[in-house]
C-alpha cells in the first residue's frame, strides 16, 4: 500500500510532528513497509473468527477498591520540566 503526501501531512498534524521533506519521504517509505507487513493478514480467511483486542486469553484482571498509593508528589514532580506550587507548569492553554 502506497502512502500519499496527503496522508503523511495528516498524520503529522495528528501527531503534532513537523517533518522536513527528507523526513517525510523516509516516513512514507517506513509506513508503506509496515502496512505491507501487516497487510499479509488480509490474505487469511477470517470469516467467522471473533475479532480480539488482546493476544493473551486472559480476562477479568481487577483491583479491589482500596487506596494503596500515598502522597508521592515530590517524586512525581521530578519528571516535570517546570513546576509551580505543586503543579506542572505548562504553556498557557484554554478552550
Amino acid at each position: 500500500m502506497q502512502i500519499t503526501d496527503e496522508t503523511i501531512k495528516y498524520v503529522g498534524i495528528l501527531a503534532k510532528l513537523e517533518l522536513s521533506d527528507e523526513e517525510k519521504e523516509q516516513a512514507k517509505k517506513d509506513m508503506s513497509n509496515m502496512l505491507q507487513y501487516v497487510g499479509k493478514l488480509n490474505e487469511l480467511d477470517t470469516e467467522g473468527v471473533e475479532p480480539m483486542s488482546h493476544t493473551f486469553s486472559v480476562h477479568n484482571v481487577f483491583r479491589e477498591d482500596v487506596v494503596t498509593n500515598g502522597d508521592e508528589r515530590d517524586n512525581m514532580l521530578k519528571n516535570a520540566p517546570e513546576q509551580k506550587e505543586g503543579a506542572y507548569k505548562v504553556p498557557k492553554t484554554f478552550e
Binding site: R63, D65, V66, V67, T68, N69, D71, E72, R73, M76, L77, E85, G86, A87, Y88
Partner: peptide
C-alpha cells in the same frame, strides 16, 4: 469509588495539587 479507575490513588476531593497521583 474510593480509588481511581486504573490505579490505587485516592479520589478524595480537596487534596493539595498532585497529592493523589502516581
Amino acid at each position: 469509588t474510593k480509588t481511581k479507575i486504573f490505579c490505587g490513588c485516592s479520589t478524595a476531593f480537596g487534596g493539595a495539587p498532585n497529592t493523589h497521583t502516581c
